[in-house]
Simulated assay, not measured.
Amino acid sequence: MTSMIKMKKVFKVYKNGVTALNGVDVNIEQGDFVYVVGPSGAGKTSFVKMMYREEVPSKGEVYINGVELGTLKKKDVPFLRRDIGVIFQDFKLLQRKSVYENVAFALEVIEENPKKIRRRVMNVLDQVGLKHKARFIPAQLSGGEQQRVAIARAIVNNPKVVIADEPTGNLDPETSWGIMRTFEDINSSGTTVIMATHSKDIVDKMKKRVIAMENGQIVRDEQQGEYGYEA
C-alpha cells in the first residue's frame, strides 16, 4: 500500500505555550478509514490540521502523498489542497449561494471546464441524495442536508484524502448514520478518510482503524478498534 500521510516526530507548540502535539509518529495508507478519538484538548484538531497545512509543525516532518509540508511554499498550498477534501462540524457553506453553486465553487476556483462542472456537480449531489435540492439555499435545508452539501463540496474534485473534523457533532443519531454511510461509500471508492469524532456509538459499531490521542500523543493505534472512552 502507498503511504498517503506520514508524520515523523511532530511537535506543535502554540505561541501561548500550549503543547498540542508531543512527538507524533504516524503512517496512514491510501484507502485507510481512520477515526481520531480522545478527550477534549487531546490534540485531535491540531493533528488533523497538520494534514491540510492549516498548521505547520514546530518540529518534525509531515508528508502528504510524498510532499513534505514544512518546506512547501505558501503559493503551492492551494495546489496541495486540490487533493484534500475538508469537512467541518459547522458546514462553512456560502449562505447566499444555492446548493449547486456551493458545490460548483470548489471546481470554479481551479478553473474547471463549465460543462464538466455541471456534470460533476449533479453527479455528486446525486451521490449524497440532494440532486432534487440543487436550487435550494442552505437556510432551506436541515442540518443533515447542509452537512451533505459540505461533503459533496469536499469530494467534487475527486480528492485522494477526505478529512472531517467532528462532522456529525451537530446532528441527531439517525442523520449521523446516514452521513457515515456516505463516508463509507467515499472510502469504498479508494479515498482515504480521516475523521476526528466524539461519537462512541459510530466508532464502536463501524470497526475501523482507531487512533486515540491524549496530551498530544498517540496512545493507541489499532485496526477494527473501539472508542475506548466514556461517552
Rank of each mutant, 00 (worst) to 15 (best):
F79K: 14
V86A: 07
S58H: 06
V149R: 14
G60N: 06
P138S: 12
S58I: 02
K73G: 03
F88W: 10
L130Y: 03
E61G: 01
I87W: 12
Y63A: 00
K133E: 12
Y63F: 15
L130V: 01
E101M: 06
E111K: 15
I110E: 11
L141A: 10
L93T: 10
V124G: 10
A150F: 07
Q127V: 01
G144K: 02
K73M: 05
K75H: 07
Y100A: 01
Q140I: 00
I84C: 10
A154S: 12
Q140Y: 05
E111W: 07
G60P: 13
L69G: 06
L69M: 05
I117F: 04
N113H: 12
T71D: 15
G143W: 06
Q89C: 02
V109F: 05
R118M: 04
R135A: 10
L141D: 13
I87D: 15
S58R: 12
P114L: 01
R148M: 11
K116C: 01
K97C: 01
Q95W: 00
I137R: 15
Y100D: 00
K74D: 14
V121K: 08
D83P: 05
R82S: 02
L93Q: 06
K92G: 00
A134I: 00
S58A: 07
S58Q: 12
L69Y: 08
R96Y: 15
K115H: 11
V109R: 05
V77Q: 06
L125Q: 09
L72V: 09
R135E: 15
Q89D: 08
A154F: 02
R96K: 14
I137L: 12
P78A: 01
R81M: 01
V86S: 08
T71Y: 02
G66E: 08
V99D: 05
